[in-house]
Amino acid sequence: MPAVVSQATQLAVKADAVVKNFGETAVLRGLDLELPTGEVTVLLGSNGAGKSTFLRILAMLTQIDSGSVSMHGVDITENGPSVRALTGSVLHAPMLYADMTVRENLLFFAEMYRLQNVEDLIAGTIQRVGIEPRLDHRVRTLSHGFQKRVALARALMHDPQMLLLDEPESGLDSESVAQLDSIIADYKSAGRTVVMTTHIVEHALEIADRAVVLNNGTVGLNSTKPSSDKAEILAAYSSKANDQ
């Protein structure tokens, strides 16, 4: 797999004047954002602010209409497959084959990512997300929380440079949320980048290095001290939500 990451590149994400419309609806209206490597960034905003769309653009599931986005200095529109290897994504749906077991799902996606030593990788990853006892269960029989954990295992298996999480805590119990926090902390300490959206704002501000409030498809507020700027961020978030 081509390595496109330069350790000298300090910016994990650079978005310049990104515009995305869905038909008549403008979702991102010239969004500019720079996210340094090794930070946990939380994207906040009311419904329709553009958080999930921006994450989908970073995951390369959605194409931008204009502007540019680069990851670790590489333009994502021109280097599709190799840039996708940099990210691991957990989006709204678990995106798993319900009639395959957890092991079969992970083995299949390991083949899609062309990974080596797959059995060892799976063993390490499932232990990390706490799904060992469910390894040979069909995904259909798992609770939503466990399906989310399997989705997280799939996202982590190839050890991506950047983790993209869209409301990862939804459907998780408090133990699973604590485990997720621990994985995020591990990722950050390894110098990796996490970009996540959430509606549980206060909790997110405690674990994030940066909080970005999106408003009408642009950056309304960009704080590098989310825990100390909590009041300001909450005010910005609430006012956007009330505007809806």
Binding site: L61, P81, S82, V83, R84, M95, R114
Partner: peptide
């Protein structure tokens, strides 16, 4: 979408 996320 999971297939589309893969580097293929």
């Amino acid at each position: 979408e999971a297939l589309m996320l893969a580097p293929i």
